[in-house]
Amino acid sequence: MKAKKILLVEDNPDDEALTLRALSKCGVVNEVDVVRNGQDAVDYLFAREKFQDRDAKDLPQLVLLDLKLPMLDGLEVLEIIRREELTCTLPVVIFTSSKEQSDLTKGYRLGVNSFVCKPINFAEFSESIRQLGLYWLLINEPPPKTY
């Protein structure tokens, strides 16, 4: 069985490069699709607009979601994901620079599976990514398919 995809929602190209590097360094073999704003993330998941060729039923195994995004921000994207029948069980990890109390509260209220703060130190950053990949792709049992 082909390993499922990871959806990375990240507007900062540097963070994107660092995340991808860290993922590949720690041996995550899953394919990573990258979208650069909130609207694209929603379109991707529901196979709309420029992602209409995608199979909507082929959901990623994990969504790594930044909070500060152009157009729809991360929390709004999360709200849509949790509201829709198709995606309401999708594992979503907020991966952000913010440690704001209000963001944490709102994220968990909206049903995020995990909230991880991006460390500035690259070693720590890589370690975070490695553990995230390990946990969500190998250890964690994904939700059963609802379709």
Partner: peptide, 21 residues
Amino acid sequence: AYSVSHDLRAPLRAMAGFSEA
């Protein structure tokens, strides 16, 4: 403050990350 915490960190992370790389 939110911008500071988010936007100032990103370039810093880039500097740290790429110097490490």
